[in-house]
Design a binder for these strands. Structure first.
Lengths: 163, 163
DNA sequence: TATTGTTATACTCTATAACTATA
DNA sequence: TATAGTTATAGAGTATAACAATA
């Protein structure tokens, strides 16, 4: 199941302990932040390929998920939960609303608030997206083992929450 | 050692099983890509705070590291090892060269190549930066345990290389 | 012809200030 | 006075096309 990423170039470089690009990364391979970034980019690239057919980007998928988990909540609370700044979350919701996946409803109790809900179309797309994402999680389990994937998620979650 | 991130807002929301922003993220907390992204952002924010005094961004630090590990290699090979596209790596090296941290030397064997090396100033700054980074790794070990940090790096490395 | 380095350019993400309407 | 949503804008990071010098 291991996929070869890139062929080593046919140059005259020292081939001992070289990475796929032909050079060694040295202590960078033991730097948590660097390795996490490269891993996360690999997962996102894989995500992009899988979700191209649904025309969903990672941020859109996570937004649909959070709306589904918290229907009717104000958009600023949803954005805060996702770590998206309020000005940037406006365009995000504009896009989902334009595609008929979500709707904003002005709250009657406090007319400053925009309650956000999924449409039937949004729920249907999310359901399909969740199936695609399950396939990605399965692929990760293929590589790391079920226990390895669980551990990676638990360790990442802990770092996110406690750092 | 656990740092409180943000106080829960004093609104009238359902407070059962809510995250720090007041909403639950649902199955997103078990999505590898999402959790890895949030963790990686936390680590990078911590990095930015620690490296502000050195005026080094993550990409600059990793570039210095790779040059130090592969002195005299062509800039395109260095950029490829870092996963930075050639056009974008030009400005990266321009910045390091302008600050007197690195130098480009035209190769005599193949005059298309720019061999990149660190200056004494670059090596000195890198040494200080490595000490700062060690402190960050120690902080991560405080949170995850030494074994947990090793595992997180090993699992991330495997995913990066094999996905 | 092919490759290295470069410029120009564009698109996405992220970040800040300031406006509006509501409270 | 404070907050939610919005607009405008600016800065990173990342992507492609094309050109000059060199092989």
């Amino acid at each position: 199941m291991v996929k070869a990423k890139a062929a080593a170039p046919g140059n005259g470089l020292d081939m001992a302990s070289l990475d796929m690009a032909g050079l060694h990364l040295g202590s960078l391979e033991h730097a948590a932040g660097y390795v996490m970034r490269r891993a996360q980019m690999a997962v996102f690239n894989d995500f992009a390929a899988r979700f191209a057919a649904l025309d969903l980007k990672p941020g859109q998928y996570s937004t649909l998920q959070v709306i589904a988990s918290n229907p009717g909540q104000p958009q600023s609370a949803l954005g805060a939960a996702l770590g998206i700044l309020r000005p940037n979350f406006v365009a995000m919701l504009d896009g989902l609303e334009r595609r008929g996946l979500a709707r904003r409803v002005r709250s009657e109790q406090d007319r400053r608030l925009q309650a956000v809900i999924l449409t039937d179309k949004g729920r249907a797309l999310l359901k399909r997206a969740q199936a695609v994402q399950s396939a990605q999680e399965a692929r990760i389990s293929d590589i790391l083992g079920e226990e390895g994937r669980d551990r990676l998620i638990a360790l990442s979650l802990r770092l996110w929450r406690e750092l």
